[in-house]
Amino acid sequence: MIVAEKKPIEEIIEQVEDCEKLLILGCNECVTVCEAGGKKEVGVLASALRMYFLNQGKEVRIDEVTLERQCDHEYLEEIREVADQYDAIVSLACGVGVQFVAEKYHSQRVYPGVNTCFLGATEQRGLWTERCQACGTCILAYTAGICPISRCAKRLLNGPCGGSSNGKCEINPELDCAWQLIIDRLKALGRLEDYEKLLEIKDWSTDRAGGPRKVIREDVQI
């Protein structure tokens, strides 16, 4: 999923200070799971902002809506009738959601309420770690299901480097060396001979290096 973190409230206040009607817009998907932008966080932010404004002597109307998703036309249409009633919308969705709201409601001020961090997994409650960089040409089949693009600091295709020690990466003693993990898992799979096969230079044109990307699926288009 997409992992995000709440922005400090001070930063949000700076953007919406002059508003009199605000919509705080949550998203029911990834940001709910990583406890940054779901219904609950919408409620907390709205309540805190209301108090902030009251304390400044301003009664600001702050409404709360949480959509199923903010990255789909169909759900974003649900605020069509009300969107222009507000001076600004603070979206607690990932950067994709924020942009889609801004695109769809073109003349509306839209601000992000979270920092979008990475594609990752919930290792435990309150701990999320990166697992994928959406490189567009997945090589997990050759790396024992462990991604060296997102998990090796140097994105090595044929690691480890000389900085791997005791299973940890040289950039941070807390961080597992991705290539140590790959070798360990190849061993567990009884496929250590695969480690001898060199990975060829990767096609990076499907990564961000090739500019903004698109997926077109004519077979499902209507």
Partner: peptide
């Protein structure tokens, strides 16, 4: 923390 930030 939050109440501190909003001045309450």
């Amino acid at each position: 923390k939050l109440l501190e930030s909003v001045g309450v």
